[in-house]
Design a protein around this nucleic acid. Structure first.
Lengths: 121, 121
DNA sequence: AGCACAAATGAAAATGATTTTCATTCCCAT
DNA sequence: ATGGGAATGAAAATCATTTTCATTTGTGCT
């Protein structure tokens, strides 16, 4: 196990809290920070583990990391500009619980994302 | 441009309307069909273009294709054995619509998956 | 049938993100 | 100082996906 390199988190913040591992790496290089790509990946993985960042997927499948609040929440993502709104999903929680019960599933989690075009796009 | 190989669509149907390109390919091989991986990718791409299938992303980023236009549904997936149950998600549809409206998003879609341990695992 | 040309096919190489390996460096407690 | 575990990063491995390119197939035309 390894802990997150603080400069990675700092860079993610500076990037607007939304970037892929490769982007964080390139950003740090451009700013003269000496770091290896491996460490960037490891740090993001660790931040994800600690629920300090969230992971989403670009359309091409590349993982993008985002700072997020600790509480469980869902996202409304704009396909055009990438803007993301954190939304509450009480209905989903209930739905997931009901469905799991109906089929006898235990230890359940869920994912739910809504994507579309925001007012500006 | 190329048109979709009909056996690819047939295989996707047989797979329960939910599979990655690699899985479709492996399935066809196992059933003795002679086809190249490239053709599978091209066909899925074409089906996507024609809006005959939908694309989602697995947690690891792999693209999975599913038939769409038919009944929209969601999945309950076992983390242990991979068993998948198709479930209905009326509550989700309503939730997505409400949220989109609230934030002025148009042209919205959504994903929702529940995962846990099935009774056998 | 024979020919020409476009579309389809697939093997192999290229690409690109991510993970793994492994040797080295760093740091801290003894 | 010194021994050991954690952190680091270069290079290789992995894996899905795309591109290249030569070959095959199909179709219309004479």
């Amino acid at each position: 196990m390894s802990r997150s390199n603080p400069r990675v988190l700092a860079t993610l913040e500076r990037a607007g809290g939304f970037a892929s591992a490769q982007e964080v790496y390139r950003l740090m290089q451009r700013e003269g920070e000496s770091i290896g790509l491996t460490t960037v990946y490891r740090s993001l993985q660790s931040l994800l583990n600690d629920k300090i960042v969230d992971v989403l997927r670009r359309e091409d499948g590349e993982a993008i990391y985002r700072l997020c609040g600790g509480a469980h929440h869902h996202h409304l993502v704009c396909k055009g500009c990438g803007e993301t709104v954190e939304i509450e999903g009480g209905a989903i929680e209930k739905w997931a619980k009901t469905m799991a019960q109906e089929f006898g599933f235990r230890d359940v989690g869920h994912t739910a994302e809504i994507f579309g075009l925001c007012p500006k796009c």
